[in-house]
Design a protein around this nucleic acid. Sequence first.
RNA 1: GCGCCCGUAGCUCAGUGGAUAGAGUACUUGGCUUCGAACCAAGGGGUCGCAAGUUCAAAUCUUGCCGGGCGUACCA
Length: 557
Amino acid sequence: MQHIETVFEHTIQDLFGLEVKVVFTRPDEQFGDLATNVALHIAKQIGVSPREVATRITDAAKDALGADVSDITVAGPGFINVTLSDNELLGRAQAAAAEKPQIYQDKLVVAEYSDPNPFKAFHAGHFYTTVVGDAIARLVQAAGAKVHRVNFGGDVGLHVGKAMWAIVGEDMQKALENLEVLAAQPLHDRATWMAECYVKGNTAYDEDETAKAQIIGMNKKVYLIHEQDDHTSTLAKIYHTCRDWSYEYFDAFYQELGVDPFEKYYPESQTTPVGLATVKEQLAQGVYKKSNGAIVFDGEQFGLHTRVFINSEGLPTYEAKDVGLIMAKWHDYRFDLSLIITGNDIVEYMKVVLKSVEQFMPELPPRTRHLTHGMLKLEGGAKMSSRKGNVLYANDILQAAETAAKGDKQTAYAAVKYALLKQRTGGDIIYNPSESVALEGNSGPYVQYAHARARSILAKANRSDPGDFIDFEPSERSLARKITEYPTVLEKAVTELMPHHICTYLYELAQTFNRFYEQSRVIGDEREALRLQLVHAYADVLKDGLSMLHIPAPEHL
RNA sequence: GCGCCCGUAGCUCAGUGGAUAGAGUACUUGGCUUCGAACCAAGGGGUCGCAAGUUCAAAUCUUGCCGGGCGUACCA
C-alpha cells in the first residue's frame, strides 16, 4: 500500500486540483490513530464547508486505503480521523524500536559541552550541562551523524592565576613537595583541594591589594609557561601536575556518571594563541578595531553589543579564546554542524563572537548552532551562590542520589539524569534534591522498573511462535498504539534537539503498559502469543528510548 | 534605558494553531494468595500573568501593559 499521506494527497489533487502536503498527527485515542486537519485548511479556497470537504475526501480515499485502515471518519469542524487495522498496528509496533530518523545521515557533527574549568570545582551546573549535552549528542548520533564530542576549559586566565597563587604560596619549592604528598590522596580530594585554593585566591584578590597584584602577575606567568612550552621550571611543574589532576578528575567523573567520553579537550592555552593571531590579523582587515586601548568588535552595527576581544593589557578575553576555539574546531574537523551547548547566560555574547567570525569566515556561523539551557536553581528560584553557602557540587548530587537509592548507583544515576532531562531544555530548572532522586512517579526508576517487569515476563515465557493473529482487546490496542508513536517522538526530539520529548513519551508508554499489565495476564492466558509480541515490542522501545537518554535499562532491578 | 528568555493546578512541569488544557507531587480513598505494588484505580484542585488584535479555530501567532531572570567594554 502507498503511504496514507500519499493517498490523501492524490485524492485531493483529483477532487479539487490542489497540491497540498497532508500531515497526520496523533489524535486523542477516542478519535482514532491518525488525524488530519487538511480539510479545514483548504475549505476556504474551495468555497465549501470544511465538513463537506472532509466528507468528499474521505469517501474518495476509502477504496484506495485498503485493508490497513479499518475506519475513517469525519469529526468536529472537519477533522478526518483514521483508525488502523489491528494487524497493521501490531506490525508498526514491532518495527517501532528499529526506526530511526536519518536526519543527520553521514553528517560530521562536533558537539561541545560540559566545559568545566581546571583548578575549579565541578559544580551542579556543569553536571546539568553535561547530562543535556550527552543526550543531545546521542540523539544526533542516532539520527545518522558521526559525532565528535569535545570539551573546552580554562586552563589559563584569571581564575587559574588565583588558584595557582594559593597553591604556590610563599615557598614554591615547598609547594612542589606538597604536591608529591597530595599525589597519594584520592583524585576527588585533590580536586577539592584545588577548588579550595581557587576560593582562597579569589577571596585574597578581592580583599588584599598586594595579593591582587601578585595574582595578576601569576596569571601572566601561567600564560608564559605555555608560550615557552615550559615543563621544567618549578612553577611549570606545579601547574602541569595540577592541571593534569583536573583532567583526570573530569574523565573519572564522566565515567562514573555514565556519559560518553570526550574525544578531545580544547584547553584555552591552545585556543588562545590561535584566537590572538586571528583577532590581530582581522584587526588589520578592519573586522575588529581599537578602542580605549582594547581591541573590540563593534557589534552595535549589527544590533548586538560591542565586546572586548583583547583587553588593554594585551591579554585575550574569553571572546578571543572562543574565536580560537571555533577556528581550531574547524581546522580539526571541517564539520557539517558544530553544536555548542552552554547556559543561556551567554546567548548575546555568543551572537557577538559568531557575528565577528562571520566577517572573515562566512561559512562557519551557518553551520554552527548555539543550544542553550537554563540555570540550575534551588526551590523558590534561589540562585546557587558560594557566598550564600547554597552551592551544590556535582559530587554532592551523586552522593545524595546514591544514598536515596540505598546504594544502588544504577538507579540513583538514572533518577538524577531523568530528572534533569525531563524538563524542556532552555528555561531555568528548579533543582529539588529530594525529588530528583525520587523512585516513583514520572521518574527514571519508574521507567526502568516498568522495563524490568516486561523483561521478567519475557524471561519466564517459553514460546516464540507468533500464533494466529486475533483482534486486540482495548488495553492491548492502547499499548500497541502507544508503541507506534515512538518513531514520531524520536523524530521530533532529533529535529528540535530536545531530549525531554523522549522522557515524556517513555513515561506515558510505561504508564500505558502498567495499565495493561494490571488487568491482563500474559503467561498462561489464551491470548499469550499475541500479548508476548506486544510486551516484546514494548520492552524494545523502552530500552531504545532510555539509551537515547543514556540511562541503562537493566533486566532486573 | 535597550536586547534576549520566561509567566499554565498549592508546588514542579508537559502541551507552542485544532477536538473536553494534561502529568507528577501533595492531600483523601480503594486494590497484593495471582507474570515484579518502585504499580494500578477513584476524587477534589485552572481568570493558561492582564488586555486588545489576527483566524473557521489561540495556552500557542501579533501588539501593548504587568511581574521575574539573564545580558548590556576589558569576568567567564
